[in-house]
Computed example of a mutant assay.
Amino acid sequence: MLKTALILSLGIVLSACAHESSSPTPAAPPTTAPDQWVGRWIGVEGLNLTLSKDAAAGPGHYLLKMQYGLDAEQSGTYKGQATADGIAFNRQDGSQLLRAGDGQATGLKWLADKHNCLIVKPGEGYCRD
């Protein structure tokens, strides 16, 4: 009787282990997407973004040269780092995240029909034709 219980217990444990190992492992987010974003992006009313790799800092690091507002002080070059959701960076108005989207996601009617865009926040986006 004890032997039967032990065998059943072992079977249950092995079954649970087999179940865990057969469950799919979530895929890691693509890390190359930001590399595809390198280049110039155009916003509205003269706003723009030029994204380049930061070779000195290594893979996954970027430089964001941007004019993000109409005032002269709303521009600069910022260091960014790739994350699972986009490129994280800091500027005078705080921590930001650059992520892919479409013109509708920018919240700007002038970009609404675009399909290849990068968005910082509603009202701030940059697109390519």
Rank of each mutant, 00 (worst) to 15 (best):
V13L: 10
V13P: 04
V13D: 05
V13G: 07
L14K: 10
L14V: 08
L14C: 12
L14D: 05
A16T: 09
A16F: 07
A16M: 11
A16I: 13
C17M: 08
C17K: 06
A18W: 06
A18R: 14
A18T: 09
A18I: 12
H19A: 10
H19C: 11
H19N: 09
S21R: 09
S21K: 14
S22E: 05
S22N: 10
S22M: 09
S22L: 11
S22C: 12
S23Y: 07
S23H: 07
S23M: 11
S23G: 06
P24N: 09
P24K: 07
T25S: 06
P26G: 09
P26I: 01
A27C: 04
A28W: 06
A28E: 15
A28R: 12
A28N: 10
A28D: 12
P29E: 02
P30C: 02
P30K: 01
P30H: 07
T31E: 13
T31R: 09
A33V: 14
A33R: 10
A33G: 01
A33K: 11
D35Y: 09
W37I: 00
W37E: 00
W37D: 00
W37A: 00
V38W: 06
G39F: 00
R40V: 14
R40S: 15
W41F: 01
W41A: 10
G43Y: 00
G43C: 03
E45Q: 13
E45M: 13
E45P: 09
G46E: 06
G46N: 05
L47A: 12
L47C: 08
L47G: 03
L47R: 15
N48S: 07
N48F: 07
N48W: 05
N48H: 08
T50F: 12
L51E: 11
S52H: 13
S52I: 01
K53S: 14
D54I: 08
A55M: 15
A55C: 04
A56Q: 12
A56L: 12
A57G: 01
A57W: 07
A57T: 02
G58M: 03
G58C: 12
G58F: 00
G58S: 03
G58E: 03
P59C: 04
P59I: 14
G60Y: 15
H61L: 12
H61R: 15
H61S: 10
H61T: 04
H61N: 14
Y62E: 04
Y62M: 02
Y62N: 03
L63R: 14
L63W: 15
L63Q: 14
L64Q: 04
L64S: 02
L64M: 09
L64V: 06
L64G: 06
K65D: 15
K65S: 15
M66W: 06
M66K: 02
M66T: 14
Q67S: 15
Q67N: 12
Q67L: 13
Y68S: 03
G69R: 04
G69N: 02
L70T: 07
L70F: 06
L70A: 13
L70R: 11
D71P: 05
D71Q: 12
A72H: 13
A72R: 11
A72Q: 12
S75Q: 10
G76M: 00
G76H: 02
T77G: 01
T77R: 04
Y78C: 02
Y78R: 05
K79Y: 05
K79R: 09
G80A: 07
G80S: 07
G80R: 08
T83D: 04
T83C: 05
T83Y: 03
T83G: 04
